[in-house]
Design a protein around this nucleic acid. Sequence first.
DNA 1: AACGACAAGATTGTCGACAATACTTGGGTA
DNA 2: TACCCAAGTATTGTCGACAATCTTGTCGTT
Lengths: 219, 219
Amino acid sequence: MSIFQENAVTASDKAFFRLRKEIVEGEIPASAKLSETELSTKYEVSRAVVREAINRLESCNLVERKPNVGARVVALSPEGLIELYQVRESLEGMAARLAATNMSDEEVAELKLLLNSQSENIKTTERYYQEAGDLDFHYRIILGSKNNHLINMLVNGLYHLVRMYRVQLGMAGPRVSTAFDEHKHIVQAISNRDPELAEMLMRRHIMYSKNNIEAKLNQ
Amino acid sequence: MSIFQENAVTASDKAFFRLRKEIVEGEIPASAKLSETELSTKYEVSRAVVREAINRLESCNLVERKPNVGARVVALSPEGLIELYQVRESLEGMAARLAATNMSDEEVAELKLLLNSQSENIKTTERYYQEAGDLDFHYRIILGSKNNHLINMLVNGLYHLVRMYRVQLGMAGPRVSTAFDEHKHIVQAISNRDPELAEMLMRRHIMYSKNNIEAKLNQ
DNA sequence: AACGACAAGATTGTCGACAATACTTGGGTA
DNA sequence: TACCCAAGTATTGTCGACAATCTTGTCGTT
């Protein structure tokens, strides 16, 4: 939201963004086969650009490809979700740790502002904005790490898959208010320039979120 | 080594592997421009397969690409190396944690065997094998995590870049014997099924390694 | 001399056609 | 009926050509 609008310069970019959107939002369902010729007629572009778009989606972990067979949208599974959250815990924990050192005072101030604006809207606004706000919060900390590998892996490699799970399994649960407190403590730790604590709190935050989702899946 | 031989089925695969090898080993130097036409004549394949190979290399963080301009091999910098090791610390720490839970008893036994065989060769064998042995050790723990995201990110996304730094900045330092002790303790923790300790020891192991490299760079 | 506009050249992006591989369907045999 | 083999079909992989964009070098103006 807000922070990330990527601009498509080439036709492959457009195809990539469009395809990614349709996959994440379930318009193209999970585990569906992606036919290159079909998509090329649907999007009115050459097969080459569709191919390139699909290749990029593979790097994003949104599709799987087999040589001489084709590409499918990834399958969503409880195990896959667990694995995803394990990686998130690890990487975002490190992001919070680094953010505590590398975020500028101004960025920290903006993060606090974001938190305040969310605390006001927390009961009035509908779920969608809470979801977007949560993403925004995590994005800022990821960017605050100033570690390009980390940023790239999380933003391009994992977050669209996280969104796909959220949309298609109907997440965005009733955990908003407690999650908000966790966010507050994380910001506090970052503001205090306490890397250890920031990492630990972020890891716990994501772990709680994972447990919450697991409980939902098993009910 | 040993564990990972990837088999090329398509022409793009071959081009990808070859190009990756040449980049990692410095035959194509860091920051060099990759001309599609040039490479296509050199490899005697179409530009399309070279393009696809380059795209895949971009996913590996080995080249950077700008639309309508072209691709360059990544530049190696001390900052980049630090960032890389920060991500490694995070991910491999998690890998060790998960391995402590998910590795089979048999896999743990094999890991111990590997360690023993290395302790014998540690003074006799030349540097190359020590290097390979180190990679092998880390690979096994990564695979032992049984987390596909983690495995993919580390094996396909980071390790070739790590190797590139090692080869081109002439790493593989005199840290072998102390590193071996660290490896031993990590295996012990995994064998004891102690995830917390395994993660902590792995993180420290990688941090020490990072510090060692930093010291070398600054001397 | 410095700067900017323009033209020529080179490189990347996109396309449609052909080749190679995998899947399907029908027939035959045990 | 169940299984295997083979031809046909569909899909992916590869190629060379054309279009669009960027870079370079030249010229003219201030």
